[in-house]
């Protein structure tokens, strides 16, 4: 990736604008990884420590992995070393958002929709996000998901990581990633549906 090489060269020269670029581009992904491993309360500290480790080790970045993979691996390692042994066991929490999910109650006994999805007034994400109340509502839903669900969703949708990368970073199985992702998506869907139907959160 030529742009990446260029950015790394500028970082090695100590160019401040390059550092700013780097942080702005990858901070979100690093935060999602940190939250998934240590929780929200310690995530910012982990991210900060990870950035300092990045600066210390930049010379050693061999370019075998992508820059993003390297940064996220450092973040995961920093987070794990803080975690010590008390890894949370409840991986497959079934926490849903404030507007529920698409569960059995929506289906008849024969497996067909009992309450079919309502038609939204638009299929345009931009149009939907135009409304401040909806943006707030989505933030609220994301905040009520479990930290692991939220992180998996962020890493997949916003950071476009592949599922195997998410498994590796967070030490969770492929099938668990799929379950977490599915639950998070259905909660988001339920929030949008609820907002479209009622106009409020």
């Amino acid at each position: 990736m030529p742009n990446e090489q260029d950015l790394i060269q500028r970082l090695l020269k100590g160019e401040q604008a390059a550092y700013r670029e780097l942080v702005q581009q990858y901070q979100g992904a690093m935060r999602a990884v940190a939250i998934a491993i240590v929780g929200t309360a310690s995530a910012d500290e982990v991210v900060q420590d990870s950035w300092l480790a990045v600066v210390r080790n930049l010379n050693g970045f061999a370019g075998r992995a992508s820059l993003k993979t390297w940064l996220l691996t450092i973040t995961a390692n920093t987070a794990k070393s803080r975690l010590r042994k008390q890894r949370r066991e409840v991986l497959l929490d079934d926490i849903t958002g404030p507007h529920g999910t698409i569960d059995d109650a929506r289906f008849a006994a024969d497996g067909h929709w009992a309450q079919a999805p309502s038609l939204w007034h638009t299929d345009s994400p931009e149009a939907l996000l135009n409304e401040q109340a909806l943006r707030d509502c989505l933030e609220h839903t994301l905040a009520t998901l479990s930290e692991l669900q939220r992180s998996v969703l962020m890493l997949r949708e916003r950071q476009a990581l592949e599922l195997p990368d998410i498994c590796n970073l967070l030490d969770i199985s492929h099938s668990n990633v799929r379950v977490l992702l599915h639950r998070a998506r259905l909660s988001v869907f339920a929030t949008l549906e609820h907002f479209e139907e009622t106009g409020e959160c």
Binding site: P117, W120, D123, S124, P125, E126, L128, L129, R135, L138, E139, L153, E157, R158, R185, V188, F189, L192, E193
Partner: peptide, 12 residues
């Protein structure tokens, strides 16, 4: 609409 909500999260 699930795909729409996926794109909504991307663009939030």
């Amino acid at each position: 609409q699930l795909r729409v909500s996926q794109r909504v999260i991307r663009q939030l």
